Each structure stands twice: as C-alpha cells, then as structure tokens.
Amino acid sequence: MKLLGSLTSPFVRKVRVVLAEKKLDCTFVPEDVWNEDKILKINPLGQVPCLVMEGGEAVFDSRVIVEYLDTLSPVGKLIPPSGRERLEVRIFEALCDGIMEATVKVFLEKNWKGRTDAQRSPAWIERQMGKINAALDMLADRVGERNWCTGQHFSMADVTAGCALDYLVLRCPDLDWRSRHPSLVRLQEKLSQRPSFQATRPPQP
C-alpha cells in the first residue's frame, strides 16, 4: 500500500497515526496538493489523503481510509464494531474533522496566494473561527475528566482529537484555547507522548 499526502495535512496525519497504531506497513509518498493534474489521475476529487492499494485501486477520504485500516489488524482496535460506543467514537471523529476542516479554510483564506489581501474575507474567517470555538467547547465538555475521549480506551476519537488540536497550534497559534479548556490541554499532552504522534508531528514553520 502507498499513502499519498502532505506532511502538514491533519487528515493525512490522522491516517498516518492509525497506520502506526495498527503497525501496518505502508509507504508514505509526499504529494503537493496543489499539483491537481497529478492527484486527479488517482483521486477525482483532487484531495489527500489517498490510499493506493496493491492492485492500484484508490481509496480516499480519511474516514473511509481509517475505517478500512482498522479492519486489517486486530492490534489496537480503534473503532467499536457497533452500538452506542461506536456512535460516540464516530461523533467525536466528525466533530474533530470539522475543527480541522474549518482551520484549513481559515489558513487558506489568510494565506492562499491566488487572492490579494483586498479579496480576502474577514467575515468568512470569523465564521470559521466561530465553528472552531463552538466545536472546542463541545469537545472539552464531552472529554471532561475522562482518561480518553470516550472513556477508558484510546480510540479513533483520540486520534482525530489529537490531530485537530495539534493542527490548531500549527495554523492558528494566536487562538487561546488552552486557558479555556484545561481538559483538552491534558488530553493533548497525553497524546503527544505516544510514539505514533511523535513520529507524525508536522514540520513547524
């Protein structure tokens, strides 16, 4: 298998963390996400992460990829098979994916070279920041005093939460979420000690 992606993409990192936690062999191929002609040949959506199977079949969207990877090995099961426990993990994943999506939009609106400063929209940035802060409030409330996002076990919820929080540090360093959410600080510090997170830490600017 080959994983195509960017070292700074939180969605790519999410997949890389799962590969490390599941101890699965996969070659990582760095890709320029703006080289659409190249990526479109593999993924019609022109997005990463994209997992290329041994037969050449492409699997895309981080949620689809990680769910498939979780079935490949019994080591460190990350997504419960059914019931309310599975629902809770997937809700956490969706919430944290939403934080990452909004953060990407803020970063691009502020930095994309295809627009001039006059073309950038402060209202759009404010809207996305509102989503981020509301999602952080909910995430902190749900984590509370738990050891992990969904209780006593490390799961996909924690993978995505860790990637989302680290991406906020990378792309929105001025956002002061730590003073408001000590439970998330505790969770981030715990996750940062795992080898899977240390090995996939994005390059710093």
Rank of each mutant, 00 (worst) to 15 (best):
R13H: 08
R13W: 05
K14F: 03
K14H: 04
V15T: 10
V15P: 03
R16C: 09
V17E: 02
V17T: 00
V18T: 08
A20H: 15
E21F: 09
E21P: 09
E21M: 14
K22F: 00
K22G: 09
K23Y: 03
L24H: 09
D25M: 13
C26F: 01
F28G: 02
V29A: 12
P30H: 01
P30R: 07
D32A: 09
D32C: 10
D32K: 04
V33G: 06
W34C: 12
W34S: 12
N35T: 13
N35K: 14
N35G: 11
E36L: 15
E36R: 15
K38N: 03
I39K: 10
L40Y: 03
L40V: 07
I42P: 01
N43V: 02
P44M: 01
L45S: 04
G46N: 02
Q47E: 11
V48M: 10
L51V: 09
L51F: 10
L51G: 11
M53P: 11
M53C: 10
M53D: 07
E54P: 05
E54C: 08
G55W: 01
G55Q: 13
G55P: 04
G55S: 11
G56Q: 06
A58G: 03
V59R: 10
F60E: 09
D61N: 03
S62T: 08
S62K: 03
R63M: 15
R63Q: 12
V64T: 07
I65F: 04
V66L: 03
E67G: 11
E67F: 07
Y68L: 12
Y68D: 00
Y68H: 11
